[in-house]
């Protein structure tokens, strides 16, 4: 289960940050599920539990002063990994005026543009051209940044994906397309709807290198996205398939009856948080006590975000008419 990583390459602080980021997302999502159950959160709510290593490993390889992140509707983990305020995110799930999108976006439309997090998009694949365009701007203005564009295995057959890869290659854009393959497009196992089982080959039609990565191993994700970013910054777009697994249903209303309990349990044994934790324990970089402390802080952070959301005001009716035109 535990990969052979040379942990000496990293500072202990960095490794602990990866662990902490993942735990915070996990606890935040558990809280979101709980509050959804209490009907504090409505509509579509897609949880990131199980997939934490993808956003955390990938986004930690970036410098968000110049780099950018775009993702789809399963976006809670990504915005938190970008360092946005959990309070503002939970308030957004509550639809409150203090939410990161002033209560107008909700779960699928979280934004923090100051941190270069561009959402959040509820139409499958529709943000892939958007990410491509942000990369076009970087290229046009001769900046140094790179764009990470996350999407699921359900989006990969959309024309938007294929059109974007072609544009990125002919225009030499600094963009990394990351397919978070959690293996189910809503309730459909990807083998049933894909002409290829190995998505990594899909970049080759556009002369873009592709690679499959273990998305349960945060260090592998970090390393691979870091090297992809080095390529992309030079104007060579990259496509990565990061294999992962979501523990919950597609959304809160999905009981996930299309897969077996055994399959779920099997993946839970490869839990990204447990993998990193045991690596750090074996290397004596973290004690059980420290881990418990980290986990307690994450729970506290989530509870605090709920309190913030609960106490925040609703948007006023007049705010209906704001933010339509610049």
């Amino acid at each position: 289960m535990v990969k052979d990583h040379d942990l000496k390459k990293y500072s202990p602080e960095f490794l602990k940050k990866l662990l902490k980021d993942m735990i915070q997302i996990r606890r935040f999502e558990e809280k979101s599920a709980q509050m959804y159950g209490l009907q504090k959160i409505g509509g579509f709510c897609h949880l990131y539990i199980g997939q934490e290593a993808v956003a955390v490993g990938a986004i930690n390889s970036l410098d968000l002063a110049k780099d950018h992140v775009v993702t789809a509707y399963r976006d809670h983990g990504h915005i938190l990994a970008c360092g946005s305020s959990p309070d503002a995110v939970m308030a957004e799930l509550y639809g409150k005026a203090t939410g990161c999108s002033k209560g107008k976006g909700g779960s699928m439309h979280l934004f923090d543009v100051e941190k270069h997090f561009w959402g959040g998009n509820g139409i499958v694949g529709a943000h892939i051209p958007i990410a491509t365009g942000i990369a076009l701007k970087i290229k046009y203005l001769e900046e140094k940044g790179v764009v990470l564009c996350f999407f699921g295995d359900g989006a990969i057959h959309q024309g938007a994906f294929h059109e974007s890869l072609n544009l990125a290659k002919i225009w030499n854009l600094p963009v990394i397309y990351i397919c978070e393959n959690n293996q189910y497009g809503m309730g459909t196992f990807y083998h049933r709807v894909s002409s290829v089982k190995d998505f990594a080959v899909m970049g080759s039609a556009y002369n873009i290198p592709g690679k499959t990565i273990d998305g349960m191993d945060v260090l592998e994700v970090y390393e691979e996205v870091s090297s992809a970013a080095r390529l992309a910054r030079e104007g060579n777009p990259v496509f990565l398939e990061i294999k992962t697994y979501r523990y919950k249903g597609h959304s809160m209303s999905d009981p996930a009856k299309y897969r077996t309990k055994e399959e779920l349990e099997d993946y839970k044994r490869q839990d990204p948080i447990l993998i990193l934790k045991s690596m750090l324990e074996q290397a004596e970089l973290i004690t059980e006590e420290e881990y418990k402390q980290m986990d307690a802080e994450a729970k506290e952070m989530s509870a605090r975000s709920v309190k913030f959301a609960e106490e925040s005001p609703e948007p006023t009716i007049n705010q209906l008419y704001e933010d339509i035109y610049a």
């Binding site: 051209p129 365009g133 024309g159």
Partner: peptide, 20 residues
């Protein structure tokens, strides 16, 4: 552009959002 209206229109929107 290639004949891919969704792709190049979306890319132009992304570029506009980012500052062009």
């Amino acid at each position: 552009t290639p004949i891919t209206e969704e792709g190049f229109t979306g890319a132009a929107i992304g570029a506009a959002m980012a500052g062009l």
